[in-house]
Every structure is written in C-alpha cells, then in structure tokens.
Design a protein around this nucleic acid. Structure first.
Length: 399
RNA sequence: GCGGAGAUGGCGGAGUGGUCAAUCGCAACAGACUGUAAAUCUGUCGCCCUUCGGGCUUCGCAGGUUCAAAUCCUGCUCUCCGCACCA
C-alpha cells in the first residue's frame, strides 16, 4: 500500500481551500492525520460527456487527496441515469442506453484523467448493486422518511410553488447514500447543491452499522456570464478540452469580480499569492486585466501545458491588446477576381444572410486588409492573400 | 374522467381585428471607449430586393369568417393548474 502523507499544511489545504463546508471537520482532520488510507467517493453523471471548469472543481479536490495517497472512488450513476433524471421535467429527458453511457463515460474519464490519475482510481457502476437487487431498494425505503426528504430546501420551494416532486426524486438521495454504504466511503465530496444527498449517505451507513462518512461540499462556480452557474445548457461554460486560445479568451471574458474565485477553485497558485493579487487589485496596484491574463495562463497551463498557455497568452495580447493579426488564420479558397463584398461574406460562411452582412458593413464591422469597408455595395478584386476581418474575432485569409 | 388556463421570434414575456416583422427584458452581434472577448455607452438583432423605400414568409397544427387576423370561429396536437378516481 502506498504511503500516506500526513503533512499538516497539506491537510489544512484540503480542508479549507475552495471548500464551502466540512462535516464533521474535527473527525475528518483526525482521520487524515491518522495515516490511514481513506476512501473518497465522488458520484459522476454519465449523461454529460464533457467536463468543464465547474466539474473540474471536485476533481481538483480529489486530486489533492490522491496526492496524499488516498483512494478515489468514482461512482458512475448509470442506474439512475437509465431511469432518466426527472428534474427539469418540462422536456422529458431522453433515457440513455447502456452503449451511450459507455461512450460518454469514455470521453468523460479521458478528460477527468487530465486532473486525477485514473489508473489509481476505483470505478464502480451503481447499476451493479441496484438493478439486480430489489431487496436493497426495499430496505432503503425504510431508512428515510418522507418528512425528512421533504424538509429539503429545494423541495420546500417546489411545494410552495405548486410544482410536483416525483417519487424518484424522493428516492434519489437514498440511492446515492446506498452507494456510500456499498463502497465503504470515508469521505464524500460534492457541490453545495448535493448537501442533502451527501448527508443521506451518513444516515444510510449508520443504518448498516458502518462509520459515517465525512463530507466536503464545494462551491458551484458561475460561468462566463458571471451570473448563472456554469453549465452546458446555459452556454456559459469553459470546457477543459477546449483549444488553448479559446479557453484563454473565455477566461478573459469572465467578470472581474470572479477572478479570485476562479483562482482559488480552478488554478494551482498558492493561496498567499492569490490573496496578494486580490489586495493589489483592490489598492489599484494591479490592473484586473493583468490579473485575468495571469489567471487564464494558469488555468490553460493545467490542461495544455506551459508552452501552449504562453502561446495563447501572447496571441491574446497580440490580437486584442495590440490589435494585430492572429498567427493562424483560416483560409478560404475562392476564385480570384471581382466579387461583391456581401457575396464574399456569405461565401466564407461569416454571415447567415445578406441582411446580416449589410448590417455588419454598415456598422463598420468588416475590414479588408485592415481597411474598413464603407459600403455594402462595394466590389473588390481578389488577388489572393487578402485578409478579411469580421468583427474583432473573425479573420479569414483569401486563398 | 370533470373543470379551468395556456401555446408568440435563441430564452423570458407583451400584444386580444387594421398604425404588428410584432412593446420590453435577457442572450447574441457590431461600433465607441477602455484595462480584456470585463464594465459602460450607442446601434443592430425574420428573409429578400433596395442604401429613400418596397416585397415575402412568420405568433402550436389544419381549416374557416373578414376588405383585413398573432388577435374572431371550428377541429386537432401538446403543456400547465384545480378537482375527482385510487391510497
């Protein structure tokens, strides 16, 4: 068995950095110091194949545990996924087949592998102990009470709004808690929204005479809009698989007030440094833009390496600060000769309709070789090699 | 099963016979400014032709009334809310 690291500073970091709440803190601290190999559980949802920075937060916490020599256990919630998640009932989510789940999972794990060491990780499908075992489900239904489940804040809200709660949703925490019993978890981590479910794990373990798991809840992070939590369906996410330039740019577009939060949750910088950044921004010594450049660099570095991160940073400065041309420009193969500017925009796929092209031109959003095109009636002669710029971000070279 | 409400552009949500391509908010896009793809301000935001202005197709689906419908009528599909049935 690998040696367990019990360094006090590292333990402190695990329990505090980017952590919302720890239950039961003293107990967990003692456990970590004991030198025992702990089993840390995290449930993942196989319905989403892509991991974004929001998902990365628990994985980064898991990684810290892994670095100390503890065991990560991922629970694939394929059982509940196949039933179909009932929340957000307006559009009955389609149920996933085993094959789809497998496929999603493959992508998911390869992305998770950028953060944690998958080889050292234990992976379980909860369908293994649920689908063939009605007894366990029956027994589970005796452990919790309706009152208890309904006490949840989110259910209360729905009741008062007159929205219904499906039975499956009532059962969901029980299923999740049962996983904790099956894999004998010492710790479970999850987002703050998971709090109730995580606590249920303790109750179920207790029912089966097992030591209760400790719980770490982690904050949810806002997406690029700075308002709603990061989610694919809101289109405000930053995927960890995204190209360095894109990733860099998206991080640059987060509002200033999220800079510190992102640093704490998504980057590796020591907390002291982050604190200094915060103070310097407050005092005006540090331009938030520069703090963000640094943030973007640090995050891109984690997923793409130092070299590519530096390149993305240089590119960003070149294109957006100095307003120079990007290094790589998509090329459009097109017949040389005279062509109307509107047709050209349409041909290269920069716009969806002629109206849109005209609008862009009227708003001075189109440049050819850095010259603003003044009128959409303009005809131009292509010799090849011209640079067409649409807005700030789209560049096309005529081939 | 009974009763009620509703379905509008990417989303939310006005509009209840003509002045509606449809108020407004959000998102998106462009410009200015800047400290960045932040913030703020301005503009745009169905398609086509025209740089004035005009045409066409849109308001769940299918018909109908009317000179004229997102708006009225009929049928259909779907959603939501009460009640009942069942516990």
């Amino acid at each position: 068995m690998a040696k367990i690291i019990t360094d006090e500073n590292k333990i402190k970091k695990i329990l505090t950095r980017g952590v919302e709440d720890v239950i039961v803190k003293e107990h967990l601290e003692a456990q970590l110091k004991s030198g025992k190999e702990l089993r840390i559980k995290f449930g993942i949802d196989p319905t989403t194949p892509d991991i974004h920075l929001g998902h990365s937060i628990p994985f980064r916490k898991l990684k810290q545990f892994q670095d100390l020599g503890h065991k990560i256990i991922l629970i694939i919630g394929d059982f509940t996924a196949m039933i179909g998640d009932p929340s957000g009932r307006s559009e009955t989510r389609k149920q996933l087949t085993k094959k789809e789940i497998k496929n999603n999972l493959k992508n998911y794990l390869s992305q998770a592998g950028k953060i944690i060491n998958i080889k050292k990780t234990e992976i379980h499908y909860n369908s293994k102990w649920f689908s063939k075992n009605a007894d366990s489900i029956l027994e589970l239904s005796r452990i919790g009470s309706i009152q208890q489940v309904l006490h949840r804040a989110d259910f209360q809200k729905r009741i008062s709004e007159g929205k219904d709660i499906t039975l499956l949703e009532v059962f969901y925490p029980l299923f999740q808690g049962y996983d904790s019993f099956k894999i004998k978890s010492d710790i479970e981590i999850g987002g703050t929204d998971q709090r109730f479910n995580l606590l249920m794990g303790r109750q179920i373990q207790k029912h089966y005479n097992m030591p209760e798991q400790d719980i770490i809840t982690l904050p949810l992070i806002e997406g690029t809009d700075g308002i709603r939590k990061m989610s694919k369906s809101y289109g405000n996410y930053i995927g960890i698989n995204e190209q360095p330039n894109n990733m860099f740019g998206k991080i640059m577009s987060i509002p200033d007030n999220l800079i510190i939060k992102y640093f704490l949750l998504c980057a590796d910088l020591p907390e002291i440094d982050i604190e200094a950044i915060g103070n310097n921004m407050k005092s005006g010594k540090l331009n938030p833009r520069d703090a963000k450049l640094n943030l973007a660099f640090e995050i891109v570095r984690i997923y793409h390496g130092e070299k590519k991160a530096q390149k993305a940073k240089d590119e960003f400065i070149r294109v957006f600060s100095k307003k120079e041309l990007p290094k790589k420009i998509d090329e459009l193969k097109i017949q040389k000769g005279r062509i109307g500017i509107v047709d050209l925009l349409l041909k290269c796929g920069a716009v969806k309709s002629k109206g849109e092209a005209k609008r862009l031109i009227e708003q001075k959003g189109v440049k050819l070789n850095n010259e603003v095109i003044g009128s959409w009636g303009a005809e131009i002669t292509l010799d090849g090699g011209e640079i067409l710029q649409i807005g700030k971000r789209k560049f096309i070279r005529i081939g």
